[in-house]
Structures are given as C-alpha cells and as structure tokens.
Nucleic acid binder design. Structure first.
Lengths: 241, 241
DNA sequence: TGACATTAGTGACCGAGTGTGACTAATTCG
DNA sequence: CGAATTAGTCACACTCGGTCACTAATGTCA
C-alpha cells in the first residue's frame, strides 16, 4: 500500500525537515492524516528526521509554539508534511510521558486530519501513505495516537458529515458508500444506505455520469446539505458500550 | 444553587491549596467536575488561590508533572478539590495561549469528571457546586472548558453508560430518567424511556422500594449490564450536524 | 373515612424507520 | 447476441419510537 518513493529531486516538508532534531521540547503537536485508497484507509507517515531514532517512520509533528494556537499548529504541520492542507482537522487526545515519543517530548497533543482521496504525498519519498494494517513500527505514543485518531474518526462519523471530506468534490454514491464501509468496518445494504441518504437531503445530483470499467455508469453527486433535519430522537441505550 | 459555606474549620484541598501561586507553568491540567442537584447539573469551582486573580472562582487545576500521567494528574486534582475521587473521568480538550488561564499557563488540558449525586464539597467554603446557568465569571479558558466538558458529556451519553455515574449505586427509574433529561436538556417520555431501558438489559431491580413524599413508592434498581447487545444499526444521516 | 392529587408502572396502537430480497437499467466483454 | 457487472429502485415485513390511556400505590385534606 505504501506508495513508491518517486525518483525525483527531494523537495517538500520544509518546516518539519528544518526542525532542530536535538532540542527536547516539552509539548509537541502530532498529526494523523487519513485518506482512503480503494477499500483501505491509509495514514501519512514521514521518515524519521533524527537518524538516531529507533523507528524509521513517524507521524508528522513539531514542537508547540506558545504564540500559535494548537489547531493552527496542526494545520501548519499537516501542510508541511503533505504539501496541501487537510480538508478537516480535529483534536484527538493529549498524552503524557508514560509512552515514548520519537522526539522525547514530555507531552503531546494529537490531531486528526482528513485528506480527500487521490491526494498524493509530496515527491521525494519523505512521506508515504500506509494502510492501517501495514503500518510500520512506530514509537508507542505515535502508535496509540493512530488508534485514537481512528476511534475518534468513527465517533465523529455520525456527528458530522466527515465522510464527505474523504472524497473529491464530486463522487458517486457507490464511492460514498465505500467510504462509510471502510470507516465502519462493515458492509452496508445499498438500498438502506441510499434511502437514508436521500431522506437527509445531504447530496444533490449533478448532470454528469462516470463509467468505471464495466457496468452501468454512475451518476455523480456533490455534497450540498439542504435542510436542518429536526430528527433527534429518543435515548439509544442499545448502542451503549 | 451554590451551597452555603459551612462554618467549620478550613480543611480540604491540601495539594491544590499548596500549589505555589507565583510559578508560571507551561502546561496545566484542569478538571470540570459535574454532579446533579435535583433537576440541575452543577459544576465544582474552587476559590482563586492567587489573591491577584481577576476572577474569584476557578476550576480545580494544577501544573502538569512530567513524571505523572495526565489522567493520574486529573484524578489527583479531583481528589484534592472534592475530598473524594470522581466516579468517572475523561479527557476533554487541550487549549492554548489564545485564551487566558487563571494561572497564566501557556497550554492546558481539561478533564471531565462525574460525581454521584449527593456528594458534598469539602468543608470550609473553598469549593462549591454551581448550577450551569449560575456560574460566576471565570477566566476565558476555564469558561470554554466548562462548555466543552458539557458538550463532551452529552456526546458520551450515548456511547457509554455515563449517566449511571451520576447516581448512587441504587436509584429509581425516575431518578435515572431525570439525569438523562438534565443531560439532554429536554423531557423524555416515560414509557419510551423504560421500554428502551428494559430492552437493553442495563439495570436490574432490587427488592427495595423508596417512597419520596406523596405518590406510589418507586422500586429501586442497580446498574447491572447483562448482555452484549448486538444491535448496531445502519448509518444515521439524520443526526448529522 | 373517602375523594383527590401525585407519582410509579404497564399495555396497546400507530406511523416512521430499517433490513432485506428482488427487480429493472445501462454498460463492457466475449 | 447473451452473460457478467455495476447502478439504481421498489416493495414487503418487521422493529422501533412517540403517544395515549389505563392501573397501582401512596399522601393529603375535607
């Protein structure tokens, strides 16, 4: 799943690469960027900048700066590692010194970022997408952040329309369903999925069709939420756990 | 709603009170403790330790210690402020220097804690419960933490059985429903509530009845989740927002 | 003491929502 | 052409959730 390092001039990741590798920061901001690759969810990792690092890969991160808000820092770090900004970010978890950080920082704040499908990592092989089940060894704190970020993403899935952030501006309903299936980790029934989607007035069809190989061409849709749904319903004890 | 400061010897809050008020910490851990008082949700505030503080009340907090995990610190701070430990804690949010902290710390990590109904604050009037709509002026970062903590609590409400942490070990179903109503901020229908609760096998009746004033005495229940509910259902687009 | 208010608890109806299978539609491949 | 494949819809059965109506057990008060 890891994308081949393109054989080109090493560019990209200016700010993160320029981070002084010796200084030991008290607080770091670390970013877990997700994007779908086919039926698999992938995470962006960058090569360890410190040559003495125990692991060869790590999450994009940098020391927190006192003059910069945390979410601004997360956006900056994502942009440095990816070249482009994330479509959506959200704070995940703060963790302390009981788990080792690749930069030996005392505390860390992890952010989650979503990147639309098809966004390549910058050239030079300094950053690559890894499927969730093929993630190389990471420092324990980074490994925990990845798991927490995925859990947070799944939590967020039925609170905000995050799935659309993982898709290009126009997409087919099969693509959308595939994203939901990847995030939920289970298959969904086509008819149910479309019925619920239609009832929520979240997407609108555009006058374009896309044919991918064999089979009937699919209509393209765009995310365009129409109404406030008044829906909120009763207490759902059945999904406690 | 604020409880009268009992006129007794000033005890309690040893660790927090002993915090050096001058030292400017980089990172603080702040705790938002909730408990229900009748039909209102209340938050624990302590008197500002620094006499030069702009606000007279603040959330219990302390500087983060590098040798102590964050959740351990939160538990310690809760115990210092309340005398007893919280029944459940959860990390809420990390915030940075764009909002003023009463201790002028650069970064803060907020924790949410639930305290069973009926737990009094320690003697001496150094700590009191305040209803959500009667919270005195707080430093902006603390004010934001309270709001985030309530939002997180409501989110958590249908993910884990947190409501039971706000009740004593045995309770009536009316009490349980009242807690849900306070947390959700709306009335629930009795029959629906009980039907859903019964179907989820979360509580079991004990052989005791309690009569509170007039009306039929209510049976007491205890939290005792029985089965794994297999229930998970389809995508709920309708509650996106 | 007996009517009434009050709170607890349950049964039943009904409409909306959900899981499911079966169907039609439009394309590619051989 | 027909088979395979993917897109899209319909209809049925069942569940779930909102609601009303009723019974039950207590305290209050005339």
């Amino acid at each position: 799943m890891r994308e081949r390092p393109q054989t080109s001039a090493p560019a990209g990741r200016p700010a993160v690469a320029a981070r002084p590798v010796i200084r030991r920061a008290l607080l770091s901001v670390d970013v877990v960027l997700f994007t779908p690759h086919g039926r698999r969810l992938t995470v962006l990792l960058v090569r360890a900048t410190d040559p003495r690092a125990r692991e060869r890969w790590e999450l994009p991160w940098d020391a927190a700066r006192t003059e910069e808000a945390l979410d601004v820092a997360a956006a900056r770090i994502a942009r440095s590692a990816l070249g482009a900004g994330a479509a959506w970010t959200r704070q995940v978890v703060a963790s302390g010194g009981d788990q080792r950080h690749p930069g030996e920082t005392e505390f860390s704040i992890a952010y989650l970022g979503l990147v639309p499908a098809g966004t390549p990592p910058p050239m030079g092989g300094e950053a690559s997408w890894f499927a969730m089940d093929e993630i190389p060894p990471l420092a324990p704190r980074h490994r925990a952040m990845v798991d927490s970020a995925l859990a947070m993403l799944r939590l967020e899935l039925d609170q905000s329309p995050v799935a659309f952030r993982l898709l290009p501006p126009t997409f087919t309903l099969s693509q959308l369903q595939e994203v939901y299936e990847v995030l939920l980790g289970r298959k969904l029934h086509k008819a149910s999925f479309r019925r619920a989607l239609h009832a929520a007035w979240l997407v609108e069809p555009i006058d374009e069709w896309r044919s991918e190989g064999r089979g009937r061409p699919a209509q393209l849709f765009r995310y365009a939420p129409k109404k406030r749904r008044t829906g909120r319903r009763g207490v759902r004890f059945d999904l406690l756990g």
